[in-house]
């Protein structure tokens, strides 16, 4: 794909050619020139929506998961079951009524209409409920005994679960970046679209679609993901290993 962004249309479809004939940054120029799509804008939309979803989902799920993981109370199992239900019925399945409902809320064509529903993560709830059970009980007990408020106690165990927070935040960021159905339905205008939607629309726009520009767009669209992944990789690995071992 990265190679493809340097090739002409003809070269791309002739798959016997592996290396482009001429290395040219021409298509990247076209990409940013806004001839086919407002690339900076879509990239910015994607980054904004995905980051807010990643952070929002992590914070919400961590807070609720902390309560579920460290307390025993009546109705706890109900909440856990609810979490399982959310895992089993992902947003794509309720995309249609969600679209109607988001319209009713007046969030049509608004990035919030995609970002806010994306912050509900059943998997996150179950994940953090388990993660916070790994935190030594004594630690939480001591903090509570000292009279720290619930919020203070929660914040004080935060550093302990940092790899888990990063791992989940990253995973959710990737899912948000990939989302297709919901952004496609809710974000209508070109200014509001996210990257995958714009690229798919560009492909479908004409038979003579600019393949090299598509490839260039896809290549640049991968950069944030790979950078983040490289940054989160050690944390991701240690979190997963610890989680699996428990």
């Amino acid at each position: 794909m990265a190679l493809g962004s340097f090739k002409s249309n003809i070269e791309i479809f002739n798959t016997r050619v592996f290396w482009p004939n001429e290395w040219t940054g021409h298509y990247f120029g076209i990409l940013f020139s806004g001839e086919y799509l407002n690339f900076e804008r879509t990239l910015f939309n994607s980054i904004g929506i995905s980051i807010s979803q990643g952070i929002g989902a992590t914070v919400l799920a961590a807070m609720a998961g902390y309560i579920i993981g460290t307390y025993q109370f009546r109705g706890r199992m109900t909440l856990v079951t609810l979490g399982c239900m959310v895992v089993l019925i992902p947003a794509q399945m309720v995309a249609l009524p969600l679209f109607v409902w988001v319209n009713a809320l007046g969030l049509f064509d608004n990035p919030l209409g995609v970002a806010l529903p994306g912050m509900v993560s059943g998997l996150g709830l179950l994940f953090f409920a388990r993660v916070f059970r790994l935190v030594p009980k004594e630690l939480i007990e001591v903090a509570r005994m000292e009279g720290a408020s619930e919020w203070r106690t929660f914040l004080s165990v935060f550093p302990l679960v940092r790899p888990f927070l990063i791992a989940f935040g990253f995973a959710h960021f990737v899912l948000a970046w990939h989302a297709h159905v919901i952004p496609m339905l809710i974000l209508h205008s070109e200014e509001a679209r996210t990257l995958p939607i714009s690229l798919a629309a560009l492909y479908g726009s004409s038979l003579n679609s600019p393949q090299a520009v598509l490839m260039a767009g896809s290549t640049i669209g991968m950069i944030p993901l790979i950078t983040l992944f490289a940054m989160a990789y050690p944390q991701l690995k240690s979190a997963l290993q610890e989680f699996v071992a428990s």
Binding site: M63, L79, L82, L98, L116, P117, M119, V120
Partner: peptide
């Protein structure tokens, strides 16, 4: 601590499901 998550769940998951 626990309420925001379930509030979101109610608004953006349970409501569309019911509406569906």
């Amino acid at each position: 601590l626990a309420a925001p998550f379930f509030l979101f769940l109610l608004v953006f998951w349970a409501t569309p499901l019911g509406e569906g």
